[in-house]
Amino acid sequence: MRIPCPYCGERGNAEYAYLGDAGVSRPQTPLGAALEGATLDAWMNYVYLRDNPAGAHRELWYHASGCRAWLIVTRNVSTHEILNVEAANGAIRDGRVGAL
């Protein structure tokens, strides 16, 4: 696979490390809150549960052997077609990543 890094240009996948679904966001849990119910569900979901859709998927990739940028790569996991690549920086905070 070839992934176009917005900073470095198109590079082979050997330069990248894969993390997984970019659509999960870290729950906000106040100090001292009990780990149960919706809070526990949210954390289990964030840490463990992942969808495995056929088709387009937003994923986190790290340009480990390049510029060290974390990227959100939109990839059709059935065809490996890369549909979009953007820097992760701020995208999740800004709510620009979620289910497709």
Binding site: L19, A88, I92, R93
Partner: peptide, 18 residues
């Protein structure tokens, strides 16, 4: 060493870019 660096990059770029 490499893993922690990657983790720190993740935390900074993805979780707390501010």
């Amino acid at each position: 060493a490499a893993r922690v660096m990657q983790h720190m990059d993740f935390c900074h770029q993805v979780l707390w870019p501010d």
